[in-house]
Write a protein that binds this DNA or RNA. Structure first.
Lengths: 154, 154
DNA sequence: TATTGTTATACTCTATAACTATA
DNA sequence: TATAGTTATAGAGTATAACAATA
């Protein structure tokens, strides 16, 4: 996530053309959420990226690295690094996919599942703080609208 | 913006814990919008960053580099590079701020204003395509909700 | 003393291409 | 011929600290 210059209420730029631009608002809101999320996850030695992989590896989906890359919009080579790191720390394992010997299925270890359950609390608390401006109903509305943008194929 | 692995409908990960996470949806929607925006701006020799600076420099606000950094959530040193590049291309000028001789006000040149008006059309068209899933009303709702997250001080 | 812009540096992230082993 | 994972590398983005000029 970007910097953190200060928190002084910003100039007359709020009334500029950009301030109504959906893409700009998306970028700024994301930068803020990412910074808050990374700060909260840091105490567990995780970042948004590695946390995401760990969460997905802790579920029932048994994703391949290819699927992780696509879902997280990362290059496959970036997933290699992330899984390497998590595997070195004993948090995930690569398991050969019986149905395709080229593919690795990434699954969390017991330690990984435990860490994710702890980290999830930190992440949830951070999100709670970051989104305190919105009511629960507004958050659900926002999630639904973002889902339409995030998964346009539906 | 990240990669572009493919566009195959993704696995069972859609039903994972992450898929309901507001921060994750924000990140994925932003990655998609940013990729589309950068692609559209590339034909004008711009990216989302430099386009944003140029838009702000084209308005009435006459922002200082410090204000640009804060508004765009960039480090002041990153703004230096962006303004350097735009200035080299004759698109913006640094003007001394009479009320504070330390500060540079960044203003677009005639060429800069012209380019931004052309580029804005490309950006608008790209956004139209990227957000085609949403109705105009939904987009306005989304913008209002994102504004609350992007500018939490209000 | 604090702030604006600047420079320099290190680090992380991203994009690309090539290679292997499988399909 | 195409795909999953890997490796390597170059480039873009980010974070940090220090400095000069000014407040």
């Amino acid at each position: 996530m970007p910097k953190a210059v200060d928190a002084v209420a910003v100039s007359g730029l709020r009334s500029s053309a950009l301030a109504d631009d959906l893409s700009f608002l998306l970028a700024r809101a994301n930068a803020i959420a990412l910074a808050a999320g990374n700060a909260a996850l840091a105490e567990h030695g995780l970042k948004a990226r590695s946390y995401s992989v760990l969460v997905l590896a802790s579920g029932e989906a048994r994703p391949s690295q290819r699927e992780l890359a696509e879902f997280l919009r990362l290059d496959p080579s970036q997933v290699v690094s992330l899984v390497d790191e998590l595997q070195t720390r004993g948090l995930v394992q690569r398991q050969p996919d019986p149905s395709d010997r080229r593919a690795n299925v990434v699954v969390a270890t017991e330690a990984g599942r435990h860490l994710v359950s702890v980290a999830r609390e930190s992440a949830r608390a951070a999100e709670e703080r970051a989104h305190a401006q919105l009511s629960p109903e507004e958050r659900e509305t926002l999630a639904a609208l973002l889902r339409a943008l995030a998964f346009p194929e539906d």
